[in-house]
């Protein structure tokens, strides 16, 4: 399940959001989504403030809104799940037009959609303004276990190579008259996946040997550790700080 993942993940630019170091953005994003998740679902006013906050953050990245809108499709399967809630939840019913919907179900559908959408919108700011390798560096700076950072580093480094290989296989299939139309094309596509595995695994072995010949002992040196100035932390922290203040005010009222 889930929509296909498009490419061109990073939207090139030099905006405020682009210039912030990745680890500061990661911390800010985490702070924001945690605040949203903690917000009680009946605190409608708080959600009314979160939305413009995220929109301002998106604006700060100078990436067109249409670009963000297109990438929101990753949320679709769970929107369907959320929209089913009012029909299947228990409890007292309310009449909405011709339908009799569950009150608590409506409330949960609202909460699922609001929190999920805000989460995706905020995550997209990070995803579009940060280059993949910087995210790896940021996670390394945030003390993700070294092995995981290395695995992710290799994945990101060879991303274009392997997806390029897959694109070439697609060209090869189609230049031989293949069209993926029905279930009957599955054996061909699965064989492609098999070939891709063999090629990827063998590439992994070659990469490993090449690294050994360059003195690899299981650790990669950190060449340029990521740093953030106090000013950058302050800028990155504005979004979660504003959200947290909103939450506190909404809960106190």
């Amino acid at each position: 399940m889930g929509a296909g993942h498009g490419h061109h993940l990073h939207f090139h630019g030099h905006s405020l959001a682009h210039r912030l170091p990745a680890h500061a953005k990661l911390v800010a994003l985490l702070g924001f989504v945690v605040t949203v998740v903690l917000t009680p679902r009946t605190a409608f006013a708080a959600y009314a403030v979160y939305l413009p906050l995220v929109l301002v953050a998106q604006r700060c990245s100078r990436v067109p809104f249409g670009y963000y809108a297109k990438r929101m499709v990753v949320e679709v399967p769970f929107v369907v799940f959320a929209l089913l809630m009012p029909f299947v939840a228990t409890g007292p019913r309310v009449e909405v037009g011709p339908l009799r919907l569950s009150e608590s179900g409506l409330l949960s559908a609202w909460a699922l959609l609001a929190k999920g959408t805000l989460g995706v919108m905020a995550s997209l700011v990070l995803a579009t303004t940060t280059e993949p390798r910087h995210i790896v560096g940021g996670l390394e700076r945030l003390r993700l276990p070294d092995q995981l950072v290395q695995i992710m580093g290799f994945m990101v480094r060879y991303l274009e190579v392997v997806t390029g290989e897959m694109a070439r296989m697609k060209v090869a299939r189609e230049s031989r008259g293949f069209q993926a139309r029905s279930i009957r094309s599955w054996p061909v596509l699965a064989t492609t996946a098999g070939a891709l595995f063999i090629r990827s695994y063998e590439r992994g072995e070659r990469v490993h040997l090449a690294m050994l010949s360059r003195g690899y002992t299981g650790q990669l040196p950190v060449t340029r550790p990521m740093t953030a100035t106090a000013e950058q932390w302050r800028r990155a922290g504005m979004l979660p700080a504003a959200a947290l203040a909103t939450l506190l005010v909404a809960v106190a009222l």
């Binding site: 290395q150 695995i151 992710m152 580093g153 290799f154 897959m166 695994y201 299981g218």
Partner: peptide
Amino acid sequence: RTAPLAGLVALFIFA
């Protein structure tokens, strides 16, 4: 071999 191989396997799954 963990890092390079698991990295490429992850990429295979992703692709």
